[in-house]
């Protein structure tokens, strides 16, 4: 085997080590964990997972997270698609400035917006709803979606648009039936990144929710701060937060990296 392959496999193993350790702990009881250091679970138990799937205060966290992440991905895509088309095809007053302004929102610290968000969403009576978190996450996901989609769209030759318009297509029909199918993979990649950044964000999601729409990540911090930690349960909950992302990534793996190589800098 070549040296580079050995290096690479070594890196993958190191990368997986902390996750493996969490998996290992999730399959043991808390007493067993605290009692001895074991490199693999000797008496495998699924009690931690059973607890999460049967206790509504746990599994509701996952449902809430999935609901607002999905809402956010849909909103981001629907609004970003026409905008990205405009940026990739047209020159208009303020196009560069708007593009840069969008990106600056990706740079603003979420902590800056905590209080104003809380007040704004209280005014509209949106606190503790899924849509509040979905809208708040648009702050960083919409700019990112426009950025990635614009790259993919610029890769489509403009002759296609021109031909379609000459053939008498109106814009909405052209966009929905011809153009969108052409950038399918780009939409997949964008959806993945929106999903990812919404899924991993905690600060805003935690601030805007209390009980009804509480995300799983917040449910877990409650457990961390409580006295007498149940490590096994915490590890099982952690492992389950990885599963949805791992499923999504499998579907976009081949196009995952391509989007950025084409994106404009």
């Amino acid at each position: 085997m070549k040296k580079r392959t050995v290096f690479f496999i070594l890196y993958l193993c190191l990368l997986m080590l902390p996750i493996y350790w969490m998996l290992n702990m999730s399959l043991r009881t808390n007493a067993d964990i605290l009692n001895s250091l074991a490199f693999y679970p000797k008496n495998i138990t699924f009690a931690n997972y059973v607890k999460i799937f049967t206790d509504s205060s746990w599994y509701n966290g996952y449902i809430n997270s999935i609901i607002y992440v999905t809402m956010n991905t849909v909103i981001s895509l629907v609004t970003a698609l026409p905008a990205a088309y405009a940026f990739s095809r047209y020159r208009f007053i303020g196009d560069r400035q708007i593009f840069f302004w969008l990106l600056t929102n990706r740079m603003s610290p979420a902590a800056v917006f905590l209080l104003p968000f809380f007040q704004l969403y209280s005014t509209f009576g949106l606190i503790d709803t899924h849509i509040a978190v979905a809208l708040a996450h648009c702050l960083f996901n919409v700019p990112l979606a426009v950025w990635i989609l614009e790259g993919f769209m610029s890769g489509v030759p403009r002759e296609i648009d021109e031909t379609a318009f000459i053939d008498g297509y109106k814009f909405p029909r052209f966009f929905l039936t011809i153009f969108i199918p052409l950038i399918r993979s780009g939409i997949g990649v964008t959806a993945f990144f929106c999903f990812m950044f919404s899924w991993v964000e905690l600060l805003l999601a935690r601030t805007l929710t209390t009980t009804i729409a509480k995300p799983i990540a917040a449910t877990m911090t409650r457990t961390v701060s409580a006295s007498g930690l149940d490590w096994g349960l915490l590890a099982a909950a952690g492992i389950l937060t990885i599963v949805p992302g791992a499923l999504v990534i499998w579907f976009v793996r081949n196009n995952l990296a391509k989007g950025f190589a084409m994106g404009r800098v």
């Binding site: 993958l12 350790w21 969490m22 990540a217 877990m220 990885i242 990534i249 990296a257």
Partner: peptide, 25 residues
């Protein structure tokens, strides 16, 4: 394919869970 998926895995973990993993680790 496999290395892409494996490498991307840490990116998909909620950020506070990252903290939890490292507390445990």
């Amino acid at each position: 394919s496999i290395s892409l998926v494996v490498i991307a895995l840490p990116l998909l973990i909620p950020w506070n869970v990252i903290g939890t993993i490292w507390i445990i680790f």
